[in-house]
Simulated assay, not measured.
Amino acid sequence: MLDSVTANWKATVLSLHPEMFPGSLGLSLAGKALEKGIWALEKVDIRDFAYDKHRTVDAIPFGGGAGLVMRPDIVDTALDSVAGNAGPVIYLSPRGRLLDQNLVKELAAGPGVTLLCGRYEGIDQRVLDARDVIEVSVGDYILSGGEQAALILMDAVIRLLPGVMGNKESADEESFETGLLEYPLYTRPAEWQDRKVPEVLSSGHHGKIKQWRQEQAEKITRERRPDLWEKYLDKRNDTKLGR
């Protein structure tokens, strides 16, 4: 199913459950962008390429073990059907490269992506090798299938596409964009349950507000994500040294 043919960025999803798409991406900003043709979605049902009347796509693993494995011949035929689509082929897998903001930006800058969603115990390694498929993980946990992970990846990318978000400055200040977690946010009322908004935010002094937000972002990152904090320090030191 092709929802738009004029978009600059296209997501092609191969799945045993294509009805899961666009899911939440059909709502809010992503949904409006899909309607406007800013991005396109093509859904491919892997079962359509099965050879028997039962549309079987899996078999027991060689070497024994629990569960079933998706067959390489069927997955390969499904990939053949979208071979002309631009962008990398990504298999959502917990053993893949961790999805981070840098990878998200890379994918958003390209023409699109083909997302291969596994089920059962996974997909036969041979088709992944033969197709030079890139494996990407959305975190160190296990999901029921690759569909949820594909939605996460698509959501992160689509919001960066030109014309999707109205306020670029807001996106630039979010967590991970600067290497830091985002500073605390406050809105009305100015006092709630005896808790007051920090005075500096009502001062109207933009320089002091910017400094406060930077200090808070550094403090939160240092306390909650020491791994990110070390990377931030290394990058800042490299910048000072002109590397």
Score class of each variant (00 low, 15 high):
R224N: 11
E35A: 14
H205A: 10
L228D: 13
N167P: 02
V57F: 02
A50L: 00
G204Y: 07
D76H: 14
A217T: 10
R236V: 12
G204Q: 09
Q101N: 14
K105C: 11
G118K: 02
V138G: 10
E177P: 03
E191V: 15
A149W: 05
N237S: 12
F49D: 00
T239Y: 10
S24G: 13
T187G: 09
L14W: 06
K210M: 06
R222Q: 15
G122Y: 03
E177M: 10
V136P: 01
L103K: 07
E19D: 15
K36R: 14
G64E: 00
P88M: 02
R95A: 14
D238W: 11
D124Q: 01
S137V: 00
K10D: 12
C117S: 09
N237F: 03
M70W: 03
I152E: 10
L25V: 12
P198V: 03
I134F: 00
W39D: 04
W39F: 08
E19I: 03
E182A: 12
T6P: 03
D172N: 13
R222G: 05
E215I: 01
G87P: 11
L79A: 07
E223T: 12
V5M: 10
V82P: 02
G122M: 00
G118W: 02
K168D: 15
E173D: 13
K208T: 11
L16S: 11
S137D: 04
R95D: 13
D100V: 11
E191C: 10
L79N: 12
P61I: 00
D227C: 10
Q193G: 05
R55E: 09
G26T: 06
S28G: 03
E223F: 04
E230W: 05
R126C: 01
M1Q: 14
L29T: 05
K210S: 15
I220H: 06
E174P: 10
E218D: 09
F49K: 00
F62R: 00
P22D: 14
K240G: 14
Q148C: 05
P72M: 05
G145V: 12
D227T: 02
A149K: 07
